[in-house]
Design a protein around this nucleic acid. Structure first.
Lengths: 179, 179
DNA sequence: GCCACTTCTTAACAATTGTAAAATAATATC
DNA sequence: GATATTATTTTACAATTGTTAAGAAGTGGC
């Protein structure tokens, strides 16, 4: 087994592979049905993940500074992405190509870190999922307000409504009954 | 990078590490708050994942023959599990200890397979999650009936209700309005 | 600043779900 | 097989959400 080394140092070995890019607000970084070919990291700004359902845009994830942004299944398997990724604010990004990511993935010092980060992401996702089984929409909004007030400050309410699994009208009612 | 070999062959190398076990119905394989120390695979029978919320048992996953069953975050990090795993039917199981799983994980031929299976599991989970944002409880029940009729045959309805995010009463109404 | 456009809120009503309690059905135990 | 226990269904009513439409507030372009 490779000797564990510092996470930051392990990644820094590959920093020469990163490209840089900026984009305005409401720019598609990835379009539903296309193949995810760049693994982005957000340096500044925010974005949302969404998919189309009967003509409605359903947002299911928001990403901010430091977050990795890509469609992992599409990126790994070269299959069409099930969702789009769109900037909300103007963003500055760095990204890795699929080929360069292959190089990084082959680094034995990074193997355990990558497994771990994928698994951790899954755990976070699962906790988020639990709130849909456990809490009412009102409680989910209150949780968001308490745990991630930044989302409510930076993300338009219509996107937050679909993220909470309700309509904008219902979210508006919940908000007015709180404040 | 290790040469990719046949998935089955790669796992079979480690078959001597597996233990065998049986359990009756309604047996806890893992209790919320305890540490997941065995990675089970179901040979026969089925089980459910659930957590407690205000005295109610909320089921969020069902597992059948061939499925891996454990609390991944708890198993990896030796932290208390956020949920319980309980048999529904009598089961026969095989399992790996944490230490033996460490050995398996170190097999360079299995690294890519493990990363892939974790990532795939996440994708399945994500698709399931999407239905909570996209569909009504009635549609989720109809999807379950269409895609996994085995779940409805083998799992008590009260567990299915919480899995769908509704009460048993509401599920009963939905069922009676269909058939 | 003015206009057009989008976003958010409010209102009214329909549809769905939750809650509590009782009835029925199914299962387990002796 | 009779009884106790648990699971599921049904009923009635309260609470919440969806839908549609209209109004208010906010944004951006000229």
């Amino acid at each position: 087994m490779p000797t564990p080394i510092d996470r930051h140092t392990a990644w820094q070995k590959h920093r020469h592979l990163w490209h840089h890019e900026t984009a305005g607000p409401r720019t598609l970084l990835l379009k539903e049905g296309e193949i995810s070919r760049k693994l982005y990291v957000i340096a500044e700004g925010c974005a949302r993940y969404w998919f189309n359902h009967d003509g409605k845009e359903i947002s299911f994830q928001f990403s901010f500074e430091g977050d990795v942004v890509y469609s992992s299944e599409s990126f790994r398997k070269n299959i069409p992405s099930a969702y789009s990724i769109e900037t909300i604010e103007p963003v500055t990004l760095r990204w890795l190509s699929q080929d360069d990511m292959q190089i990084v993935r082959q680094d034995p010092e990074l193997y355990p870190l990558i497994i771990e980060s994928v698994a951790d992401k899954q755990a976070v996702f699962q906790r988020h999922f639990f709130s849909y089984l456990r809490d009412t929409p009102r409680q989910r909004y209150e949780n968001l307000l308490r745990d991630q007030p930044e989302v409510i400050r930076r993300v338009p309410l219509q996107y937050i409504a679909s993220y909470l699994g309700i309509t904008p009208v219902s979210l508006s009612r919940i908000r007015s009954s709180i404040s």
